[in-house]
């Protein structure tokens, strides 16, 4: 019926086209594997190098129990890891409830109106605001305007604000992945909205929410820039007051107002020193820092994996 095209199509050598297709596919797949290989080996090589350089300090138990020092081989990370834990406690206590509540509101309560749109664009933008800008916020507002100083509390707060979008987004995703049957079953029993949320939706979304919270906190552990901006020092030779005291009421919140340093600041301080021995100390601190964040991320991935399996 269509002579011209009939001729064109009957002359096609499918075998040769297919051969060409296949070789192109193989070339591209090899390229993909090559890029993957390059990226992963580069990083593995860098991490191994870091670990090897830091090994002498990592093997020394005093490294974990000493304060920083002018002498590189005596310098330790005691104040840094204690500070990191304290700051993280503040961050978690502030960011997790706030983020989960905001995520729950946006996913389940918010009506489709301009206010919701504004919050949504806002959260998405906050996720992309450079961390150092959060540092400026804390410097201008908490440190200068409120006069709170360079304390554990301020650091915890700024990191909490920084990871808020991460927790909001992951909470929303966790809730979205719950089948609507569960929701309908709860409403069908006569539960009202809050009962449905608190008794069915939040428990079902828990693995996803916990995963998001851990990922957010692991991001906060490694953040350096906003902490520098609020004026934290890397040379801190004391520990904040213990939260548990010998006197009544046995609990103290003095540590919130204490000066502090954290792991990434400590490492940054050592990297900036010209003496080669400090670079060894910095490498050792880097290894500890990487292990902290990787362990948290791995835990998050594991929780999600287990939740997906069941």
């Amino acid at each position: 019926m269509n002579t011209l095209s009939e001729n064109v199509l009957s002359g096609i050598d499918y075998a040769s086209i297919s051969r060409k297709n296949r070789s192109r596919d193989i070339i591209f797949a090899s390229l993909g594997i090559f890029v993957l290989f390059i990226a992963i080996t580069t990083l593995v090589a860098l991490f191994l190098d870091l670990a090897m350089r830091g090994a002498p300090r990592l093997a020394d138990p005093d490294f974990y129990t000493s304060f920083p020092s002018r002498r590189p081989l005596d310098a330790g990370i005691l104040s840094a890891w204690v500070g990191t834990i304290m700051v993280m406690v503040v961050t978690a206590v502030v960011a997790v409830p706030l983020g989960v509540a905001a995520g729950l509101y946006l996913e389940e309560y918010a009506k489709k109106n301009w206010f919701t749109d504004v919050i949504e664009i806002n959260v998405s933008n906050l996720a992309g605001v450079p961390s150092i800008v959060y540092g400026l916020l804390a410097l201008g507002l908490f440190v200068q305007t409120f006069g709170m100083g360079e304390t554990v509390l301020v650091a915890g707060l700024v990191l909490a604000l920084l990871i808020l979008p991460i927790i909001i987004v992951s909470t929303r995703e966790a809730i979205r992945s719950i089948p609507s049957e569960l929701r309908e079953a709860a409403y069908g029993l006569g539960a009202n909205q809050w009962q449905t949320m608190s008794m069915y939706i939040i428990p079902a979304a828990k693995p996803g929410i916990i995963t998001g919270a851990i990922v957010g906190l692991s991001r906060a552990i490694g953040e350096t820039a906003p902490i520098i901006t609020i004026g934290a020092l890397s040379f801190i030779a004391f520990l904040p007051q213990s939260p548990i005291t010998g006197d009544f009421p046995f609990i103290s919140f003095e540590w919130l107002n204490s000066g502090f340093t954290v792991m990434p600041i400590q490492m940054f301080g050592w990297v900036s020193r010209p003496q080669a021995d400090f670079q060894i100390t910095a490498a050792a601190a880097g290894v500890v820092l990487i292990i902290m964040t990787l362990a948290m991320n791995a835990l998050a991935i594991y929780i999600r994996y287990r939740a997906r399996k069941s």
């Binding site: 019926m1 269509n2 011209l4 095209s5 064109v8 199509l9 096609i12 086209i17």
Partner: peptide, 17 residues
């Protein structure tokens, strides 16, 4: 296109048929 046919006239004709 992925069979290597790219002459405009031929394509136009095949599109119409």
């Amino acid at each position: 296109k992925i069979r290597g046919i790219s002459k405009r006239g031929v394509l136009d004709e095949i599109v119409e048929t």
